[in-house]
Amino acid sequence: MTVRVDDSPQRLRRRPIRGTGGRTAALFLTPFFLVFLVAMIAPVIYAIGLSLFAERRSGLGFGGAEKVFVGLGNYADVLASETFVAGFGRLALYCVLYVPTLLCVALALALLLDAAVAKARRLFQVLLFLPHAVPGVIAALIWAYLYTPGVSPIVSALASGGIQVDFLSVHLVLPSMVNVAVWEWAGYNVIILFTALQAVPREVLEAARVDGAGEIRAALAIKAPLIGPALGVALLFTIIGSLQLFTEPKILSTATTAVTSTWVPNMWAYDAAFNRNNLPQAAAASIVLALLAGALSWVVSHLTSKGGTR
């Protein structure tokens, strides 16, 4: 770390803490950047290095594997793999279904909670937030049981109404997974948006009401645009979160064969590392995912911060 004192006179006059600067900053920042280096930067660099090599076994399989430099060969293999590309397709479809659903549900509930006629706001907030206290593994497990015919009250209720649904079938398992994630994260985002709504100046709403706008009109045309920045943050973290998809499909794969071992890119990388024992390919897949996810969230964060400063 090369943090140095900035001792130009003007700078010192403006800053509240004088005579501190570099050495103190180094002291305060070193612990974080040390773990940051060990837990994020070094692994990624190591994985990039590893992804450039391949293990080749000599002719008859005698002797150990030897490492051969293959350049971007692993990346080419990963991107050419049908299962990897199919997994990315599923991940994209999941994001397209999940992100708008989650934000619409969260925004609608937050606006209702902020409506003048809403009762028992604190109680509703706690109840809506409760699923966030449930670990992802357990949320997925609960819903896996709630999707399983014979155990599920939902399936049997629908069946007694003459509707036969298999939530764990090849076609429905992806929307079923979206439902698990919405259940986990809707309340969390409701609270973020509701907090932002509480900060909307009341005079603005007064003015709208005097001008004849009803509650619903005021909510959609005035409140929602005013909490744009909070919506942007919610959107960004929802996208980053959805790209992590691993826990829910991994758990549901214990309940249905519709979820294969390479169902999403994270599972593909896991399968490459631990079932196919191809660590270089697993590394390459992880790097591809990290790059795409980082690029996507960077684009979204720039778009939303531009929208927010209008």
């Binding site: 994020m40 990624v44 980053i240 994270n266 990290a290 996810a293």
Partner: peptide, 21 residues
């Protein structure tokens, strides 16, 4: 900015690199 880049990278994308290291 480095910290913010860290925020943008999904956790699960670094899990396998962490395992390899």
């Amino acid at each position: 900015s480095t910290v913010l880049v860290g925020v943008l990278i999904p956790n699960t994308a670094t899990v396998i690199p962490l395992y390899l290291l």
